[in-house]
Write a protein that binds this DNA or RNA. Structure first.
Lengths: 294, 294
DNA sequence: CGCATTTGCGTACGGTGTACTCGCATGCCT
DNA sequence: AGGCATGCGAGTACACCGTACGCAAATGCG
């Protein structure tokens, strides 16, 4: 009769090879083996050692003996990635103010404090959200020959991201844009866009920041605009009312003729148009600058 | 012997004329008169009526009989103005996060809930702060002939305000800029700057918003910069460290040559330079636009 | 004298982020 | 076989927030 620990090793190996136990899963613990196979704990330890020897498993004190190999994505388990994704969903749909740790945990079906095993705190969570959001920017692998076209692509891409994530504009200033890994990737792409020009790296960076600043500044208005919509359009009335009482006194003083004319014409905010207008002006100005450098 | 209520009226009138009781002060109440002059309450009421008849006082139910006339500034008393000013001071010095109603009240030496007699809530307080801050913008009465010069003045003035109040950039998008009375005043000035051009009011508004958006976007970075300084410079190190570990992996991949070169050159953020650069480019672009319209 | 009204302010509530702690399961050492 | 340090999940508790509510005192008035 073969040594009983060899039988245990064989059983477990079979389970691994059958895919019953996948990489990252916990093999039966020593205590569990004693119960399952009816052996002493020494035997169980010996089996563990043999498995480890074969490279099939690795032992992690405090957690268990785990099947070796690249850990596959495990959808149902809590992870930093999954938390961030859920947080982004909440922020997108209900606004940043609604993103609380409790609500986030409830949405994930876990206890509040469990989040803190994967994320240091709310601020760091937001930084992670920013990075993931920026990471969604898709830049064409083939860089356009024209720097202006490249810049326009980036700006439009950023604008799209800001629209998809209304909270992003106001949260981004929490951190230096470069801090997030995906921000660095974006920066590099923009810097490279100017490769055909005489601009120094510092100058390119200035250009990039000027552009991003404008887009981000405009994006900061998105959240408010959306919040206004969320609040049952009441804000629109309320705004009108406030404006009315506010303006009444000033118009009486007769010093607001142009502003009055503007509102009479039914001027309306359209963020997309504002974006297009500002982008065109900024790119025009940058063109003058780049041309002067060449 | 004269009617005793006439004596009381005389006494009180003397106090008022002597400046002992100033406009807005409360004249002795009916109860107080009965105690002070030893008369019946009917007499006291009669005295009050006589004073009111003379136009010296006005009666305000629930508060008292008050000396008539324009109410002078009363430094030591709580007022919406004083609250807003104190709030701005706190936000300037310690950041918006430190601005709590409790702390604000403590700084003013009053109970927390006393604030709510003068301010509906924190949000409205912030709106008031924004308005006061914007109200500090000093525009020359004599408008420059050149629209570009005018725009530059406004932009620099706004930038100065944003620097003086680091919280302003992030808070302003809470509301439409026009909501605050002083914002309207500013808008009107900018609109008027283009009087010599062919721009429609809507176009002028677009120009203004584009400019303000850029300035505000850049201003959003001020708060973080200041916060970094506040946190004992640790953030600077921490940032470097994060950047190091972050970049290490990416540089290894060999895809960040330009960014690497930038940091090697010791590129440093200088918000003022960024402002100047962006402003110049934006104004250049706007010039092309305005010229094309003429 | 009773009344409604104004004012100042204390208490309390429902919410937040998160520090702390406890129980449990683990691999390892003696 | 038993004791150990370790890792993990989760519950409890704390400090703090904005502010609704209500009470007590003072007032002019009928």
């Amino acid at each position: 009769m073969e040594a009983s620990y060899r039988r245990i090793v064989g059983d477990i190996r079979r389970r691994i090879e059958a895919g019953e136990l996948r990489p990252g899963d916990r093999v039966p613990s020593a205590r569990a083996i004693t119960r399952e196979w009816g052996v002493a704990i020494a035997t169980a330890t010996k089996a563990h050692a043999a498995l480890r020897e074969e490279g099939l498993t690795i032992a992690r004190p405090g957690v268990g003996t785990v099947v070796a190999g690249p850990v596959p994505r495990r959808e149902h388990e809590l992870s930093r990635e999954r938390i961030i994704k859920a947080a982004i969903t909440i922020a997108d749909e209900h606004g940043m103010a609604e993103l609380t740790m409790r609500r986030l945990a409830a949405g994930l079906g876990v206890a509040t404090m469990s989040l803190y095993r994967h994320v240091p705190g709310r601020d760091e969570l937001i930084i992670g959200m920013i990075d993931v959001a920026i990471g969604a920017v898709r830049l064409p692998a083939r860089r356009p020959r024209d720097w202006r076209a490249g810049l326009e692509i980036v700006a439009r891409e950023e604008w799209a991201i800001f629209q998809r994530h209304p909270w992003l504009g106001r949260s981004m200033s929490l951190t230096r844009p470069q801090m997030a890994p995906n921000g660095v990737r974006l920066s590099e792409w923009v810097l490279a866009t100017f490769d055909g020009t005489a601009l120094t790296m510092a100058e390119r960076m200035y250009v990039q920041i000027a552009l991003l600043t404008f887009v981000r500044g405009l994006a900061a208005a998105i959240e408010f605009e959306q919040e206004a919509v969320r609040e049952t359009g009441l804000t629109s009335d309320q705004w009108l009312e406030t404006q009315e009482t506010t303006l009444a006194g000033m118009i009486e003083a007769g010093t607001l003729t142009r502003f009055e004319q503007l509102t009479a014409d039914g001027f309306d905010f359209d963020l997309d148009q504002l974006f297009e207008f500002g982008l065109a002006r900024l790119l025009d100005g940058l063109t003058l600058f780049v041309d002067a450098r060449s």
